[in-house]
Simulated assay, not measured.
Amino acid sequence: MDFMKPDTVLDLNNIRQALIRMEETIVFALIERSQFYSSPSVYEPKKFIPNFEGSMLDWFLLQLEKIHSQVRRYEAPDESPFFPDDILPTILPSINYPKILADYSNEINVNDEIKKFYVHDIVPKISCKLGEQQENLGSVSTSDVECLQTISRRIHFGKFVAESKFQNDKENYIRMIKEKDVEGIERSITNKAVEDKILERLEIKAESYGIDPSLKFSQNKQSKVDPKVISQLYKDYIIPLTKKVEIDYLLRRLEDDF
């Protein structure tokens, strides 16, 4: 997949391989986060950072995005910032990417929803213990940022899936878009067999990566993160939000003719 060559980016086989690779990144990020306590104070607004309305996690995310934006991270078509109004101009020469997605694609951003389900539903389930761990608040925030960014990239990759499907079946999608047939669009982007395969593969990966290899055949082997929790994360949040991104993108597709 080469973002300077749109045909490689919109190839569904390439997209599928990229999504499979992202599974591993997400699993490893969640395993890394699992070594820390839930540390709810990290997510409490106005708790630690003077003259800042958000949480410590928000502050970490914002500062990192400001830095990364200056080296072109958010010019890349596959990146979606959590604080799009606060990113800074690049200090490097801009890259003139060819047009791959519609001009409004950056307006489709579900990062607020991602952060909400991550903090409230995922962190308590993957943390090694509930409660505070004052000496590791910085490490918790750093690990959370990694989890959030990898999950965000995976979900927003739905825009490429949507564009690819639109290009491969324009007549049918144009009809559904004009009719505002949300149910029809959702059916067209849903493949239950593929989704089941993803969930099955995730449990295998989470179990394989989360167990000390020396304990692989032990009767007392214990995974660092419950594989079913990661599978459920995909089933309840990542897959549905990816579909939301795809549907939101497709419903506006006739705004941009290229």
Rank of each mutant, 00 (worst) to 15 (best):
P89H: 06
P81Q: 02
V110Y: 09
Y118K: 00
F117Q: 04
H120E: 13
I87V: 14
P89R: 09
V119N: 00
D121S: 08
D85Q: 09
Y74V: 06
D78W: 03
N111R: 08
N106P: 04
I91T: 05
P84I: 05
F83V: 03
D112F: 12
V119M: 03
L101C: 01
S80I: 09
L101Y: 15
V123K: 05
D121K: 07
S80V: 11
I108A: 00
I95Q: 08
E75L: 10
K115M: 13
I91Y: 07
A76K: 15
P98A: 07
V119P: 13
P98S: 11
E75M: 15
S105W: 15
D86V: 01
I122L: 05
Y74S: 11
N111W: 02
R73E: 12
P93L: 05
P81T: 04
A102C: 05
D103Q: 15
L92E: 14
L92N: 01
Y104S: 05
P124M: 02
P93D: 12
D86H: 12
S105C: 09
S80M: 10
D121C: 10
D112H: 10
Y97E: 00
S105L: 15
P93M: 10
D85A: 09
E75I: 13
A102P: 03
D86P: 11
L101M: 02
A76R: 15
K116A: 10
N106L: 12
K116R: 12
N96Q: 14
E79P: 02
F117N: 08
A76V: 13
S105N: 11
E79Y: 12
E79V: 09
P81I: 09
I100A: 00
I114N: 04
P77D: 04
D86T: 00
P81Y: 06
D85M: 08
R73I: 12
R73G: 13
P98M: 02
F117C: 05
D78M: 13
D85C: 05
A76Q: 12
D86R: 10
T90D: 06
Y118R: 00
D121Y: 03
S105H: 13
P89N: 01
F117P: 04
I100F: 04
P84R: 08
D103K: 06
K99V: 11
L88Q: 12
E79L: 12
L92Q: 10
P124D: 01
D78F: 07
E113S: 13
K115C: 06
N109C: 02
L92D: 09
D85T: 06
Y104E: 10
A76M: 14
I122Q: 08
F83I: 02
P81M: 06
D112V: 07
A102Y: 11
P77E: 01
N111M: 01
S80K: 14
T90G: 15
N109A: 03
K115I: 06
I91E: 15
D85H: 04
S94I: 11
A102V: 02
Y97R: 07
Y104P: 09
A102N: 10
D86A: 03
